[in-house]
Design a protein around this nucleic acid. Structure first.
Length: 722
DNA sequence: AGGATTGAGTTTTTT
DNA sequence: ACTCAATCCT
């Protein structure tokens, strides 16, 4: 059999990983070193050379996008593509196990996923019902606390509460009550999916044995992002004989704040003593200078597994460093450089602006808008997170599982049908006292005399809608059911009324929801799930894949995103903005020790996104939360060797110059300042002028910048009234 | 029920 | 400064 095509294009290290004998491996894959290629080629190799049937392979990723990418690459490598294999995210795989073995997992067949939003609502409810002070026990913090324990594999009963520690005791109590309600409603949150799947396998030796025997090959992508439960899950499935092939980069671990344990990489080496470590250090993405900068920055982190990227590519150009006067000037400079790149024949989408936090996109967007450049902001609300979609999904969930309290709460009075807070409070009280779901309570309350006839009537109307939908769905295509729901629930009518003439109409989204359903029906279902109903598959899909963020169809523009969401992507031109102490690294990371290293890894991720040209900027002054902040350049800038940097503006200002400027000022400011003597000016290559003088309105300070055509007022402050 | 007002928070995001 | 959610008012 000729398998040379699987390894032809690989370098020696990649080839070593792909062709290695079956066993346990830790592949340290640097940024841009071809890790996905290695992962997929390895699977193909196992299949074609070692005759491992594909159904024995389990490949786990973190995001749905990565899973889809892996599947599509396998299609190109193998005659059967990924057929028979389990390829998916940790949550996707665990959820599939729960669906297949819901009885063993002690779940109702139609159990649903509780997303973060519903989770917070539920915890708020619990806090209220337990009559706790929500300032002493903020629901958000409780959610975080509960998720943390679940991620670490801890149930309420296994949490140690020190004598006299009232605070923790109450938190445990909330956790317990929260679990009871989830169980009653047939709801699992994201952490629960993993934890429950793990526990189910632990408690069911027969089931575990089955899967251990089946999955002789387990491959894990982005291993540095695994949390405790995920690692335990892998170890459990692998058992004594399974071969585990993990790929990761400890230098790109940027999700510690949500439970990822970089330590799992070292732990892996400890738990699997016969593991061989393979380093992929040749980079196919960036120029030499960019890699040198990345290597230099990350070298400041202690306790790395160690890795040094290199390239056969040339050094390329130096890294530009621009010191901006403020965030407006920073944006102006960046957009100017983007325009120059476009003039040179590049597409706007070849340029990416990366920032530490989302708020920073605003200044950039404003400049892009005034330069009339197309752009795309990543992040933001996803399809299934939209209010109207969640409303519609609530009906769908109730149809599937009457006891889903989260769905009940949302759907019951949306659109409004006269079921107010008082009615609901009665209902919740009854549900709580009798340990029933809201739906059961609503059925029962009819025979009690705690509600007015009118309220009972309204409630009955709602129950009837759900029953009516359920009674008529037999034989319907999925999209027909969705359309039926929109009509019966009155949601379409409700949102049609509300969104008259709105740009981004909610009704359009609801229609899109229906068409998502019609497209969904035509996708391939894995063998194990042939029996599952279309509806339950859709519910799982909606819960585990929140869909694309901002759809902005067809807009090919400058790409704006946070450093976190840039991970895994690459661009010819990268602009890293806002490199100031306190912003990046963030102020919070400077408080707590340990966190700084993760920020540095974030810087490493940012730098290594660039293929040809990297530009770093920082602002001397920045408006944040209403006040002007004066920042100092980020330590990460200092960690890049000077010889790699081309500084655009010397930071040393010269004061005391006297200059006149009298041309090109915009209309309304020119009357004011034209011809005034600049008594206090700053000059760096003539880009910024800080002007202090007297005008009709008193003593003022104005900052101008010249963008090559005209002077722009960046900021002005009145020092003294006239 | 829906609009107006007050108040708290303000890194990063997937599943 | 600005956003988003909770609460207050009509």
């Amino acid at each position: 059999m000729d398998v040379s095509h699987l390894i032809d294009a690989l370098n020696p290290a990649q080839r070593e990983a792909v062709c290695a004998e079956r066993g346990n491996y830790l592949v340290l894959a640097g940024a841009g070193s071809g890790k996905t290629r290695v992962l997929t080629s390895r699977i193909a190799w196992l299949n074609q050379v070692f005759d491992v049937p594909l159904y024995r392979v389990l490949a786990v990723t973190f995001t749905n996008k990565a899973a889809a990418e892996m599947r599509s690459r396998l299609t190109a490598l193998l005659p059967d593509g990924s057929r028979g294999m389990w390829v998916g995210t940790f949550h996707g795989i665990a959820h599939r196990l729960l669906r297949l073995h819901w009885q063993e997992a002690n779940l109702p067949e139609a159990f649903q996923v509780l997303d973060s939003d519903d989770q917070l609502r539920l915890v708020k409810r619990v806090v209220k019902d337990l009559q706790l002070d929500d300032t002493r026990f903020p629901p958000k913090q409780l959610v975080w606390w509960i998720n943390n324990h679940k991620d670490a594999g801890r149930r309420p009963s296994s949490i140690q509460v020190a004598m006299g520690d009232q605070f923790t005791r109450v938190q445990v109590q909330v956790y317990e009550e929260y679990e009871i309600r989830c169980q009653r409603s047939g709801l699992v949150d994201f952490a629960e999916i993993l934890l429950r799947a793990h526990e189910t396998l632990l408690k069911q030796p027969a089931l575990l044995g089955h899967y251990q025997q089946r999955f002789s090959e387990i491959l894990v992508d982005e291993f540095q992002d695994t949390n405790n439960v995920q690692f335990a899950f892998i170890r459990l499935l692998a058992g004594e004989h399974g071969c585990v092939f993990v790929v990761g980069d400890d230098d790109q671990s940027i999700y510690g704040w949500r439970g990822a344990q970089v330590e799992n990489m070292q732990k892996f080496l400890r738990d699997y003593p016969n593991t061989q470590t393979i380093r992929l250090e040749q980079n196919y993405r960036s120029t030499g200078n960019i890699l040198a900068a990345a290597n230099a920055v990350i070298a400041h982190n202690p306790e790395r597994l160690g890795k040094k990227l290199w390239t056969e590519d040339s050094d390329g150009s130096l890294i530009d460093l621009y010191t901006a006067f403020n965030e407006v000037d920073e944006a102006r400079y960046v957009i100017g450089k983007i325009q120059a790149a476009i003039q040179n024949g590049n597409s706007p989408s070849d340029c990416a602006v990366l920032y530490r936090n989302n708020a920073q996109s605003r200044a950039i967007e404003e400049q892009l808008l005034s330069a009339a450049l197309p752009y795309r902001v990543y992040g933001g609300q996803r399809f299934f997170e939209r209010m109207e979609i969640r409303d519609a999904m609530a009906y769908l969930r109730l149809v599937s599982n009457r006891n889903d309290d989260a769905a009940f709460e949302r759907a019951v009075n949306t659109p409004t049908r006269g079921i107010g807070d008082k009615t609901l409070d009665e209902l919740r009280r009854l549900a709580r006292d009798s340990a029933l779901s809201l739906w059961q309570a609503a059925e029962m309350i009819q025979s009690q005399d705690c509600l007015s006839a009118r309220a009972k009537n309204a409630l009955n109307g709602f129950l009837a809608i759900i029953r009516h939908i359920d009674a008529h769905r037999e034989g319907m295509e999925l999209y027909e059911l969705f359309d039926f729901i929109l009509i019966q629930s009155q949601l379409r009518a409700h949102y049609t009324k509300e969104s008259k003439g709105e740009l981004d109409s909610r009704v359009d989204n609801l229609d899109e929801w229906v068409s998502v359903a019609s497209r969904f029906a035509r996708r391939i279902v894995p063998d194990e799930e042939q029996d599952a109903s279309e509806l339950s598959l859709f519910l799982a899909y909606a819960a585990l894949e929140a869909g694309e963020g901002q759809v902005q169809e067809g807009v090919e523009g400058v790409q704006l995103m946070t450093l976190h969401s840039a991970k895994g992507l690459e661009f010819p031109f990268v602009f890293l903005v806002g490199l100031e102490e306190g912003l990046f690294p963030s102020a919070r990371s400077l408080d707590e020790s340990n966190r700084l290293e993760e920020e540095r890894r974030l810087a490493y991720v940012g730098i290594t996104r660039a293929r040809e040209k990297l530009t770093i900027t920082y602002a001397e002054s920045r408006r944040m939360h209403g006040t002007e902040l004066y920042g100092t350049p980020s330590r990460f800038i200092r960690e890049i060797p000077e010889k790699l940097i081309h500084t655009i503006r010397a930071k040393t200002p010269s004061y005391g110059n006297s200059n006149r400027f009298n041309s090109g000022l915009s209309e309304n400011t020119s009357a004011f300042y034209m011809g005034q003597t600049v008594s206090h000016a700053t000059f760096g290559e003539g880009v910024i002028i800080q002007f202090e003088g007297s005008g009709a309105h008193g003593r003022v300070q104005v900052n101008f910048a010249c963008d090559g055509y005209k002077w722009l007022v960046l900021a002005y402050a009145k020092l003294q009234a006239a």
